Simulated assay, not measured.
Amino acid sequence: MNRKFKNIAESQLSISELMLPSHSNFSGKIHGGHILNLMDQIAFACASKHSGNYCVTASVNKVDFLNPIEVGELLTMKASINFTGRTSMVVGLRVESENIQTGIKKHCNSSYFTMVAKDENGKSAPVPGIILTNKNEVRRFARSIRRQEQAKKRTSRFRSDTFNIEEFLPLLASSNSKLELN
């Protein structure tokens, strides 16, 4: 199969949106669900632009809300392809907010969306590879490989048919839990 490759810059995206009162939660901060929705949209756009196909979200890795986003701030999201598999891509996202009066910027979130390309019949479709051109791109690609390996280990260690409770009892000793097994 003759696979083609694309430069990462070809599918990178950046969008900015003013945060409105309608986006806020009960405490007056921008609702996390609204931010996740915007993140999913830009991940979709970036992956679709890279693959040339409709894409679906397969998983989201590590969503930590580092700083609150205020009403009236300008939210900027940057998306880039960090990794390509056969039919999947890892889209790296960075979310920043800016107080447009003071110019002060805050890093609010970094996350990784695994997107899968789909053909017109809904089947997984091959995606172009990426051309790695610098140390940061190689670092992000390698980190995605490691993250996948760690996820496989996590999944197998906690499967109900293979879970070894004795291995994890020491963790419970210092936790805010009470063990009452039947």
Results as ranks from 00 to 15, higher is better:
Thr76Gly: 09
Lys49Gln: 12
Ile15Val: 15
Leu18Ser: 08
Thr133Ser: 09
Gly122Pro: 01
Leu38Tyr: 02
Ala151Leu: 12
Tyr112Thr: 00
Leu36His: 08
Phe65Ser: 14
Asn121Met: 09
Asn109Leu: 14
Ser22Phe: 13
Lys4Ile: 13
Lys4Ala: 07
Ser174Pro: 01
Asn164Ile: 09
Leu13Thr: 08
Gly52Cys: 12
Asn53Leu: 02
His50Cys: 14
Glu96Gln: 14
Asn176His: 04
Cys46Arg: 11
Phe141Thr: 04
Glu17Ile: 10
Ser48His: 02
Ile81His: 07
Lys78Cys: 08
Phe158Val: 00
Tyr54Asn: 01
Thr76Asn: 12
Gly72Gln: 11
Leu20Val: 02
Val71Ala: 05
Asn67Asp: 04
Leu38Arg: 13
Asn7Pro: 00
Ile145Trp: 11
Leu74Glu: 07
Asn99Lys: 01
His107Val: 11
Ser80Gly: 11
Ala142Gly: 01
Gln41Met: 05
Asn67Lys: 13
Ile69Asn: 02
Arg157His: 11
Met39Ala: 13
Lys49Ile: 06
Ser11Ala: 10
Gly129Lys: 01
Val63Asp: 00
Asp161Tyr: 01
Thr84Lys: 03
Gln148Arg: 06
Pro68Met: 06
Val90Ile: 08
Ala58Trp: 01
Arg140Gly: 08
Ser14Ile: 08
Thr155Cys: 02
Gly103Thr: 06
Gly103Val: 10
Phe163Met: 01
Gln41Leu: 10
Ala58Arg: 07
His34Trp: 05
Cys55Glu: 08
Pro21Met: 09
Arg146His: 09
Val60His: 05
Leu13Phe: 11
Lys78Asn: 15
Lys135His: 09
Ala45Ser: 09
Met115Phe: 14
Asn136Asp: 15
Asp119Gln: 11
